[in-house]
Design a protein around this nucleic acid. Structure first.
Lengths: 268, 268
DNA sequence: ATAGTCATATTATATGATTATATGATATTT
DNA sequence: AAATATCATATAATCATATAATATGACTAT
């Protein structure tokens, strides 16, 4: 389940009969386990539980969430597996320092962006993409199969067709970038999908090329350039085309942020 | 606990009283949970359980591992958190396709290299480092604090001093590369530590600069060049120095592989 | 002072029961 | 005949409670 999917699903899906103590019911619940994981995960990432701090003991957490010990412990194991916490007998459960958190985990990264992506993280995402994606595209130019290239062209067509739907555009955009990762033949580069997804989600919520006809055309053109460079087996051109697309996206975000900054100034 | 640490620890640590059915006792056990996680995790990564295949049901796994349902389920949640499996009521627990596996997780990556790193993965690791680490070093040239630079110099000194210890050299090497990631100020780049660690582990097991006096000197010089470029706030030079170091390491590995290939040919 | 012993708090593990849910078979309706 | 609803069943999800292992700090003995 992707972040983009969740965006829709969370707003459309009917609320389940809430068998937990109704505590506002703000978040849509999947099941107890996911609920606890999400609640604790966001709390940790947002700093409610500081790095190195002790989480409340099992009994306290049980009281807070109204779940069984089984569910709570499985949730804690999930968080431990993602590098957020470590539990030790007699000493308790502590929050690990940030450097242990697995930022390449979709959940962990998404907990960083529940309230929109802070601009510093957005910049880091861009820097990271700038390092990885051109290299991935260059490799894809060597290794992409004919089938993959055909798929890429379909996705570019889908982006072109999505003139009126931010979501449809973003989905095709994401799929294309992830397909390039796949086509690189490098499992690690393909594995950075969560990062790309979050970065696109961040830009998707702020603004979309779809909002402006010229922007939309430019973005489609840029992505088409990547695909055609790959099809032509020109790694250097593919890498450069990717840089252009990332740069273009960043500039659009920068413009929006600037405008928002202005508005805030006026409001004061 | 790092891979490098494990190398030592696993061979030195006395075997615990094995309260599980003694099934060979090959692996050193930490606790039941970790044991089950490691067993199932390696089995999945090695293909014993194919992608998309169903894991045996809870009862079957309970019988196989002789642990309680609690332990088994917590282990499965751990694997699910790392993207290896997904459990659904009535349908069972299935192995997810590779692209869901979180390769930036130290455990998952280490399960790929239990029997030495296959050379294709090694090449991918190198390509990935080549994309990320120069960029990280360039950023570190901008953002590293005086304290971090001092630490880097200490680590270079430690590498120089470790003339006779593969392990000590590898530890300082790893610490330096990870510190550069930290100093980049980019949380994602810093988060690729697991990848770097595995790559260094791979080269460490094959050969070490320590084995050859000239190699050792060259490696120390290369790393010193990185640090001094960062200290001089020269991002371009830092990036290039990193490329040199990675290239040098790769060449050493290539040479070893070539030699091993020759030997195998002779053996036939 | 140092090392050993012990009480205690906390997670780790075990067990048996109940509940929720997806699947496939079957019946019902259109 | 085809679509839809109902039901039985298998499987994981959850619950409740009990026991074991282990790290900490106080205490004791050397």
């Amino acid at each position: 389940m992707s972040i983009l999917d969740n965006l829709l699903a969370d707003s459309l899906r009917p609320r389940r009969n809430n068998h937990l103590a109704s505590r506002g019911g703000v978040q849509p619940l999947r099941n107890s386990h996911d609920h606890v994981v999400a609640a604790l995960g966001s709390a940790i990432v947002s700093g409610t539980f500081a790095q190195g701090a002790h989480l409340p003991g099992e009994d306290a957490l049980l009281a807070r969430f109204t779940v069984s010990r089984t569910v709570l412990r499985e949730a804690l194991k999930t968080l431990a597996a993602k590098g957020l916490i470590v539990s030790r007998t007699r000493v308790g459960t502590r929050v690990l320092p940030r450097q242990h958190w697995n930022l390449f985990d979709t959940d962990v990264l998404s907990w960083h962006v529940v309230e929109g992506v802070e601009s510093s993280l957005r910049a880091e995402l861009t820097d990271f993409r700038f390092a990885i994606e051109p290299a991935a595209a260059a490799l894809a130019a060597r290794h992409a199969t004919a089938g993959q290239i055909a798929q890429m062209r379909e996705l570019v067509a889908a982006m072109a067709a999505a003139q009126d739907s931010r979501l449809a555009f973003a989905q095709a955009d994401l799929a294309l970038h992830q397909l390039i990762g796949q086509a690189s033949g490098n499992r690690l580069m393909a594995g950075t999908g969560a990062v790309i997804e979050t970065a696109l989600f961040a830009s998707f919520t702020l603004s979309s090329p779809v909002d402006d006809r010229a922007d939309h055309a430019a973005s489609v053109r840029g992505h088409a350039a990547i695909v055609e460079a790959i099809a032509a087996r020109d790694g250097v051109a593919a890498a450069e085309a990717v840089r252009g697309v990332i740069r273009h996206g960043q500039e659009r975000i920068d413009a929006v942020e600037q405008r928002q900054g202005e508005i805030k100034k006026h409001e004061r």
